[in-house]
Design a protein around this nucleic acid. Structure first.
Length: 233
DNA sequence: GCGACAG
DNA sequence: ATCTTGTCGC
């Protein structure tokens, strides 16, 4: 299984959380460790809520390029941290960590529902988890947290940079024609250009890339107790 | 002080 | 994130 460098920090307050992020931001890497040809397994991570403070983290692993589901795991856990823009990982990180313990596959790229480095301190959920597990991660958010961008052209695949403090931190990517863009930024061990390219490679006819979209659908099944207990592979 | 603000 | 059906439009 994929082991974290250390256990996810818990019982931290806002000040400590910010301190941790400022420390983590210096550990981000942008060098992709794989040859495009050797990518055969990807994953999508999504967190939803069964009740006000009862979260469910889903991780779905896919074969690439077929994008067939190889494995799907989930864990349910009470969240102990409030939702504060910029500190999402301290709220959802613990549940995601629980799901990681159940994952047997070893995805080479993880897509997260949230920001990568397009964050006030450069450490969004994707980046934080990426560093903690030393995995390749990409942040794919449905809305912007920080920065400014000009509307990208309407064709699928078009994108514009997201600027923050005169720095390019991500891209507003048109994942589907005529539809609101998604906000892509490197999580860890990957650069922006590759983040955009890989996101497009796993994007079909929907605005949300398949990994994250399917993970979200699994969460819906769980809410309706329609979880399939079939063992994958 | 005011407004912004991932999921 | 979540509460929620049909409906307008490319």
């Amino acid at each position: 299984m994929i082991q974290p460098k250390h256990f996810f920090p818990f019982d931290v307050n806002t000040r400590e959380a910010v301190r941790i992020q400022k420390d983590l931001t210096q550990q981000v890497s942008f060098s992709f460790p794989f040859h495009p040809q050797e990518i055969h397994c990807l994953a999508g991570v999504d967190v939803s809520y069964l009740k006000k403070n009862l979260a469910c983290a889903v991780i779905v692993a896919f074969s690439y390029p077929e994008l067939q589901v190889i494995e799907a795991v989930h864990s349910i856990k009470k969240v102990q941290f409030p939702y504060i823009p910029g500190l999402l990982s301290f709220r959802e990180g613990p549940v995601v960590a629980s799901s990681f313990q159940l994952l047997k596959s070893i995805p080479q790229i993880f897509f997260f529902d949230g920001q990568g480095i397009a964050h006030p301190r450069g450490v969004g959920l994707a980046t934080h988890m990426g560093i903690l597990y030393n995995i390749v991660s990409i942040g794919v958010a449905k809305s912007l947290l920080v920065g400014q961008y000009v509307e990208p052209r309407s064709r699928k695949g078009e994108y514009s940079w997201i600027f923050y403090h005169d720095q390019i931190i991500g891209a507003a990517l048109r994942s589907r024609k005529e539809v609101k863009p998604i906000f892509v930024s490197p999580g860890h061990r990957i650069d922006l250009q590759n983040s955009i390219e890989w996101t497009l490679k796993v994007t079909g006819k929907y605005r949300i890339p398949e990994p994250t979209r399917i993970a979200h659908l699994y969460a819906d099944k769980i809410k309706r107790n329609e979880v399939e207990f079939r063992e994958y592979q």
